[in-house]
Amino acid sequence: MCCEAMNKALLELCEKYSVSARGTISFEDGNFVLECNCGKKTILLPWRVERRFFELKKFLTDGTLEDLSTLRFCTVKHGGCLKKQIAKELDLAAFFTGSPVKSVFAVCAGEKGAAANIIAKLENDVNVSIECSTKLPAGNDPIDRHELIAARGVASDQTVDTQTPHASVYVYNDKGESRYTDTDTELFGFSYDEIWTIRAAFAALSDTSLFDVWNDAYATMMRGAEAAIASDEQKKVMFL
């Protein structure tokens, strides 16, 4: 991902929508970080502005789903840091429900954190399952799934009776198969992950209170992930 291009797009969004704050996206220690000209700095949590997650959260807040029971998350990627993968999913659980993680129990497998299967409990008694894997071979799009199961209604970012995410466009030609999923006209041409990184930075500059919210959330989600890893090592449920 190119920070220069992302910063140019961020500036254009700020100018277009008359957002006075200015900021710079950089990549530090495996995270995208936004530094504001007001002096504030935060690690970006792009999933918190990603449309599909925003819409899933809305199902819980607008009454589309009632009496949530269980969240089932899956994320399968090529490489990367398993702990951060776990942390992100724990943050999504807390973000969706507005309820912090109360306890975690993880079982990890493989060298250098190849995979982890986690069960968490939220303060509001909701169960969360998270399956994480880093063993998807290079060149494959990440596979993930987020399902919310309630006494009234089930919501998911994946179609019923399918195992992998859909793309918007499929091209089959003499070069094989190509897939395209474009989600943002204003940021057309950026990758899916770049789009939500820019959108997260724009959201934080539009509402600078998010800097503190996200810094707190980042610290909490990393504590949760560390507890998950510790629960595997100690074969014990860890309470946060």
Binding site: S69, T70, A106, V107, N117, N127
Partner: peptide, 25 residues
């Protein structure tokens, strides 16, 4: 070894569990 956790029931009128997860090795 195995760990299991029940969730709030979807069917409030059941006497038995209807939502649970298990993990282990």
């Amino acid at each position: 070894y195995i760990y299991s956790q029940v969730a709030p029931n979807l069917r409030k009128d059941l006497q038995v569990e209807d939502m649970l997860l298990a993990n282990g090795k």
